[in-house]
Design a protein around this nucleic acid. Structure first.
Lengths: 227, 227
DNA sequence: ATACAATATGACCGTTTGGTCACAGCAATC
DNA sequence: GATTGCTGTGACCAAACGGTCATATTGTAT
């Protein structure tokens, strides 16, 4: 984490440093970034930089925490109408993710980088943080779903949690591509995402895919094939 | 692609170079690898290396093609009993992927790196290659499924294709972790994956998740909730 | 005004990076 | 033996890398 010296910095100076880091990491991820680029982008001396952060990892973690903070704020802003039902909650999660990607594309990119670079490594995950979209998050999510009788008991929660995690992290960009021109209205807030027909129809489709797989007994499913 | 000089090399020398590259890329991906490491691992002079390849990308593409080749060979080896039904084919795909990860973990890692680094970048995908697991592959897969009446017509194939792609690339390692000790028997070939109860039960669960979402009319689904 | 601590600075360090190139070795042709 | 063309080599390059540190500047307490 940053030193106390950094935390004492003036608002705009800190913002300048953070924005440069956000820009760099969003483009190149953690592994692709360079300290020199971070420093030059910040407009301060290199020595100062090392007085604020212990190294690149430190900066990345800090920026990542900013991203998560902002997403949390956005999530609070977009209150969910009926989060009790578990698939309504999942749908709400995707809406938050879409809005976050639209409004804070760089911070969103950083989160994706963090997720993917974590997946990529064979190192054991950090299970300590029950983060939104993290490895243990959807596990807990599904466990709750079973308790609430929204998810079928036969579902292998660990397996399904990974499936949800993959969908959660990899689907958003595709959804946004599909939004096309109507993305602008969502980004600016002119359209409420909860009432945007295109978004909702895509989410209908996606949620149907997921919900059908999670909510039903396979024996019952087999009896009522669509064909 | 490699120069003709490289293709004229003796078997063991070429293998030595390729193995070094495989090792390096499996560990660090394309972006994390270094030319120097590739050269030193190969035991040849740097000048020679640049006589074989135009640069790191070139080596990576070559190694990637090796990986795809080997996976194809493995796929041919593991003949599918009933590939006509589309979900049986999907199940077979996952089995191939599991075996590939078990028997050629480094090549598999390279493939995953290629996929993830591609996802990560905002650059447009290469749609020219209808590769197994590639962006257009599952699209075509689902289109066929609809024709064969295995997939419901209401399914948004592009959306679902991305979901399948995500599952395909991110689930395998989790599946293998869950295999635990029985992985060794599969790796050595002592157990046929098509008859391994643990594998099949996990695939049952995974396929149920996917199949239920893809095969059924949402209206029908809603009538027959498991609860 | 003085003293002392906290902060800011960029020149500088050794290392590693991707890439080149003049030269050496070698086999085939004349 | 001389000539030619292909292959192999590692010293060498400029640039970039992460990181340090003596020094300069600023802030604060006395």
């Amino acid at each position: 984490m940053p030193t106390k010296t950094f935390l004492k910095l003036s608002e705009n100076k800190r913002a300048q440093i953070e924005n440069a880091a956000i820009h760099e990491f969003a483009q190149n991820g953690l592994h692709g970034a360079s300290v020199n680029a971070l420093v030059e982008g910040s407009g301060i001396a290199k020595g100062s930089y090392y007085q604020y952060f212990s190294g690149m990892d430190d900066v990345f973690q800090h920026v990542l925490s900013i991203a998560r903070q902002k997403k949390l704020a956005l999530a609070n802003e977009l209150s969910s109408s009926d989060a009790r039902e578990i698939f309504a909650y999942l749908r709400w999660l995707f809406q938050v993710e879409i809005l976050f990607e639209l409004r804070e594309p760089e911070l969103s990119s950083i989160e994706h980088h963090a997720f993917l670079e974590n997946v990529n490594s064979r190192a054991p995950r950090d299970e300590n943080a029950p983060l939104i979209g993290g490895p243990s998050f959807f596990n807990e999510f599904l466990a709750q779903g079973i308790l609430a009788d929204d998810v079928a008991t036969w579902v292998d929660t660990k397996l399904a949690a990974h499936l949800l995690g993959a969908a959660y992290h990899l689907m958003t960009r595709q959804l946004i591509v599909r939004l096309g021109d109507s993305a602008d209205a969502l980004r600016s807030g002119k359209t409420d995402i909860r009432e945007d027909p295109l978004t909702q129809s895509m989410l209908d489709n996606l949620m149907d895919l997921l919900e059908a797989g999670l909510a039903r007994e396979p024996a019952i499913r087999k009896d009522f094939y669509s064909k």
